[in-house]
Nucleic acid binder design. Structure first.
Lengths: 329, 329
DNA sequence: TCCGTTTGTGTAATCGTGTACACAATCATG
DNA sequence: CATGATTGTGTACACGATTACACAAACGGA
């Protein structure tokens, strides 16, 4: 128990071959006699030998580690994608290292630490990280996979999201229902993706001679949605709130209903963004601007695979969002 | 751009020293002239040098990687703990590798893959993994940190949870409210922790001459909570459902309310377990048997630190749960 | 001044694989 | 049967750091 892991050289001695042959036995297509391989694999199983991935990485210059930079783990607005991606990576024998950090400086520090582990790929889900920072830190690794922010850089692939059409549909419906005064509740003060999303709705409103009348900033959590909605509804008479994500929308809905007795969709319309599973729960039934998570992760995985196969150049993929109708708008 | 990472030997040449001295410059307490260190660090910064953690790990026999075995990432019943733990690990310069897999065989395969990376610690959050499997796979690493299942093994530290008192309180209240017929909705068919939790409630009922009348099995998700509650309520006339976690409880509540018009707590009592943040949201307001997540993760981190410092022997810590009152029971 | 201790640095081995190269044995082919 | 291709294996080095050991210089106390 607790004894040292057996090494390839030791196994070589046990099997009466050289350590090179051990290595070959574990490489799918390498010149080795099938009898030798079988014998080695059997001896290996017997002694619990597994090649040391750290040593292999050092030699290969490939760690098969992937850094996932995320805002938070708990927040459902990202969790579904994280979950999907982790599964897909694991199926490809890639191991995800999670980097998750609230504070800006810490996050850079953390990314530097991860870069030290020679990660093969980097996926940035967090909108709190500037792509330039990511490139500076990981420029020695091969191209970076980015989720949203486009950046002119040979190392950066990205995925663009277009929700303008869906936002237009949603605004159309709400305006037809007689609502006129819109508020936008952002998820962050200054993230690239948040501004983009806001613009989709602002454009749809402008098209109809309307505008965002009131504005607030949260942090993508239920509590912030609740709190900011209360403040918002006290200081202005809006009858529709577009929220930066679904969780904040649920918070805003609760605040309106509980503290001000306003119900959706009659008294007030509330719209979320992301299209997480929870938004469709019976108790929420949210109208939301939804992104197809599977398609999204498919795209990410596609970029990673291109990258893993050393295919040239970064790529860009565009996905469009859909409206998902609930009873809140 | 995209140029190879500079190596310690190259930096040594640039700084006019040997590579050993480079290494010393990056080791906090090693014999090196402070002038030399400053010069090296400055040259290093200039050329973007960072020691290669893979190479260091190979030499050190310490990877500073931690494997986190979890049921799922998206499910809030674990997510809060995962989030907390990841933060705490990162603060200690430990990088978490997430292992998350639905299928049993895949999970073992995955754990083997991770063991290959010489992880320093293993935290098993998942109740789907037998501790014996974990020990077999990771026996070459130093002791394993385990969350729940106790196992007599010199490599396994664990955290025991005691919710019997809190379960008793909750049952007391529900019985006082006039409920008599209890159902238990499990999270899994055969996990150690699930049986333990069920026992807390069964004992509390037995003390009052009652018993679990009906039973069902879900998978810790909202959908399974919803679906199983419908089946349960159709086949038996229970007036209280104890659920394996909060998310299933929310599903069960929705099912009762929507499909059968039964409201909590008057028509039916519903109890969750975990005490996740979402349970306290205004729209849920769940009564739940809650575990203090911070205390829990403190305990995990404590075990890891002991372990990291090579302190002898595995340890065991017991935490007690509390009742958290909402309007569902 | 002399000797023992401390300080700073270089040399070389080590961690566990993968693989280029060399070479012997086997095989196919005419 | 001769020859060239193919197959199987061993030797030796590389990957990039850490560290035991050696040694020179500086230093302190008598």
């Amino acid at each position: 128990m607790n004894k040292r892991r057996i090494t390839s050289k030791e196994l070589a001695k046990l099997a009466g071959v050289s350590s090179a042959t051990i290595s070959r036995a574990f490489s799918p297509d390498s010149r080795i006699g099938s009898a030798t391989r079988d014998r080695i694999l059997s001896v290996a199983r017997e002694h619990g030998y597994q090649p040391n991935a750290i040593a292999r990485s050092l030699n290969n210059q490939r760690s098969r580690l992937v850094a996932l930079v995320v805002n938070a783990i708990g927040n459902p607005c990202e969790a579904e994608e994280q979950q999907l991606l982790v599964h897909r990576l694991q199926a490809r024998q890639l191991l995800p290292i999670i980097l998750c950090c609230a504070d800006h400086d810490d996050r850079l520090q953390l990314m530097r630490l991860a870069s030290t582990y020679q990660v093969d790929h980097v996926v940035v889900f967090s909108d709190m990280v500037s792509m330039q920072d990511a490139v500076d830190i990981f420029h020695t690794t091969k191209p970076i996979i980015v989720s949203f922010e486009p950046l002119e850089n040979e190392n950066v692939s990205n995925i663009r999201i277009d929700g303008s059409a869906a936002a237009d549909e949603i605004i159309e419906k709400i305006v037809n229902d007689g609502k006129k005064r819109f508020a936008y509740l952002s998820g962050t003060k200054s993230s690239w993706i948040d501004k983009l999303r806001r613009k989709w709705f602002a454009d749809a409103l402008a098209k109809r001679g309307l505008a965002i009348e009131a504005e607030a900033f949260g942090d993508y959590t239920y509590d912030s949605g609740f709190k900011e909605a209360v403040l918002l509804l006290h200081r202005s008479k809006v009858d529709a709130i577009i929220c930066g994500n679904d969780v904040m929308a649920i918070g805003a809905r609760d605040a309106a209903r509980r503290l001000l007795g306003k119900n959706t969709p009659d008294d007030i319309a509330i719209v979320g963004q992301d299209g997480i599973a929870m938004a469709a729960w019976d108790c929420n039934d949210l109208t939301t601007l939804s992104l197809d998570h599977v398609a999204f992760i498919d795209a990410v995985v596609d970029l990673i695979e291109r990258h893993d196969a050393d295919l040239p150049g970064p790529h860009s993929i565009t996905l469009t969002c859909n409206a998902r109708w609930g009873s809140t708008a």
